[in-house]
Design a protein around this nucleic acid. Structure first.
Lengths: 350, 350
DNA sequence: TTTAGCACTCTTGACCTTCGAGTGCTAAAC
DNA sequence: GTTTAGCACTCGAAGGTCAAGAGTGCTAAA
């Protein structure tokens, strides 16, 4: 869109002021900022309204940006904001927490996102590639107990402690592990069929159900890694914003966000680190037609990537939110894919 | 409290009706149920009001139960409700889901609780006893890779895949595991000191940092099991109830619930399975003085117990909520402490 | 092209009125 | 002594009116 410099300034001023005050902005306030008269501003505003960038809630009110107006603002007027030192420190600290479990880190990232933006935040982890088991180990603990350890193709490791009501020898477990390594590695969940299980039972001469136990575990963890994890935090922030004083609206959005399946359908940016902004009616979901979504992608190793995002009214400080989100996503990418640390060693900085 | 039969009937009727309609109940409606005149009911109601069990929002309105009124209702008038077949089936199905990870089961229990009660639900898992590691195994995967497996005193198993930038022999890992089993088992996190780590390094002649890696992992998981897990679901349900049409109230409660630390302070029932009800001002938290909390405890083995609960307005169908919550808590206890199943075998009923 | 001036529009909040549900009280009935 | 019919009374909810004020569009002058 080709706007004169003055129109750009006015649009920018309207957006900034409306974001701050949540009230329609009149020509007078803007006029003083540009040192022109209010009448001039009114004329310009009328043209911006014709272009579909501004609108009036009613004839005798000030102007409010339309979603198209926000779009222009985001595409052409917005600048890359630098984060304050306090903000980056807060983010770094949250991400550098001691517990290094994947889902803890991700949910923590969601928490800090919500904290820094004052909007509800969600965080997703999505595996992009089908996972298989690359190795089985069976550890004999005592006569009635052993541990199944499975190493997955995405380098995560899963385990389960099994109590038996019959006895089992370490030798038997070693043999069984070898068989599983021969027959059950490198195959997806769908190929672990009852037929395979039965033929394996015959092969090792198992009548106790041991094979079923281990195979069942294999199925379970493969299914589990397929499933996506979602975290939602800071929902109460939604109610702080005047556009959600209408309980009905707030409820609609909150309900939508509580549904994990819907969260997975939300927009996804192509590039990691860069924030993607979806404004009002640009959202596919009916429930979000009045809301905006800002998301950023992070990479967590070859097999996993994820999204963090916030949801709020279209009247949102896109500059600030996008900057924070990008930073957090970049931090996550770094932490999860490259920045391996020797645990317990480099955290003397607490 | 010693009430005449008729007063009990009237109190019960007022509570039931108010729970249903959310509007102050007048003498007329009650009168028809007891086949007396409205004037009689009015007299009785006036006495109930003197006793502090009912109150009027304003002079010319019907009556509403006070928190004391609800308390009497819960203590003396409420009956044990049986769940419908549909409800029990729904609960069973949710708890019997395929993925058997502990936190998944617990969060799922929260989800179904919220679904069945139409209130926000929370679920906590609290370990009651200090956990130690009972056994280490180090599995050699390839020259640069191995897996640490630690079995804990509460029968859970933790692991981590470690990539090294130097090479390591299987023999070394075997030796290291033996050392850790000798020195690091049965001790709490506080006793894994830098001094212990250094002396262990000298004992096995480790200059590569391997000992630090394994010890760091031990510290991490011991810290992690100490931390409590909380899950909150169904927050949007709160907004469905007329007492939370006031955004300010809703926000206060939602914000309170979003704080994990606060959730841990909520009331705890003594007996597993039995629901405990805390009404309005009985709650210690200022934020919940207008709300009620119903909680039930479940046991999950010797070392772990937890709470599931719902939060809603004092105008709550305590009978229904308490029954559902007890059932879910009992189901969880059974599932997590006793009812071991051979995974992947007994779920043909899907 | 910009600006001062002015009539016009529309929301907001204050204030009033009406309506009706429900009450408390009194006196009569059982 | 208890119950009930009757009636005056109270108070909130809903709707209507009105004045104030913010902001606009338009016109005509600078």
């Amino acid at each position: 869109m080709n706007l004169s410099e003055r129109k750009k300034k006015i649009l920018r001023a309207v957006v900034d002021r409306y974001v701050e005050t949540a009230e329609p902005v009149g020509s007078k306030g803007i006029a003083s900022m540009l040192s022109v008269s209010s009448a001039t501003v009114r004329n310009e505003m009328a043209e911006l309204e014709n272009l579909g960038l501004l609108e009036q809630p009613h004839t005798s009110a000030g102007r409010v940006p339309t979603s198209l107006g926000y779009r222009i603002y985001v595409n052409e007027l917005m600048e890359q904001q630098r984060l304050s030192f306090e903000d980056t420190e807060l983010i770094n600290k949250a991400l550098r927490s001691r517990v290094q479990q994947l889902d803890k880190i991700i949910s923590e990232a969601g928490r800090v996102t919500s904290l820094l933006t004052n909007y509800p935040a969600y965080a997703l982890a999505v595996s992009t590639q089908s996972v298989t088991i690359t190795r089985f180990d069976l550890i004999h603990v005592d006569k009635h107990t052993f541990v199944i350890v499975a190493i997955l193709s995405n380098d995560s490791v899963k385990n389960k402690l099994v109590h038996l009501h019959f006895e089992v020898e370490a030798d038997m477990l070693t043999k069984l592990a070898a068989t599983f390594n021969a027959r059950f590695t490198g195959i997806p969940e769908e190929e672990i069929t009852p037929i395979l299980i039965q033929s394996t039972e015959r092969a090792v001469g198992d009548t106790t159900g041991l094979v079923s136990i281990v195979a069942g575990f294999a199925i379970e963890i493969l299914l589990e890694t397929k499933s996506r994890e979602t975290f939602l935090t800071g929902t109460s922030h939604l109610l702080e914003h005047p556009e959600f004083q209408d309980i009905g609206k707030a409820r609609k959005v909150l309900k939508y966000l509580s549904n994990d399946d819907e969260l997975l359908k939300l927009p996804t940016p192509e590039l990691a680190g860069n924030a993607k902004i979806t404004i009002g009616p640009e959202n596919l979901a009916e429930e979000l037609k009045d809301s905006s979504v800002v998301v950023a992608k992070y990479n967590a190793g070859d097999n996993l990537q994820g999204i963090i995002g916030v949801v709020g009214p279209t009247r949102m400080d896109y500059e600030k939110v996008a900057a924070r989100l990008s930073y957090i996503a970049q931090g996550l990418s770094w932490l999860l894919s490259g920045g391996f640390t020797l645990m317990g060693i480099d955290d003397k900085d607490e």
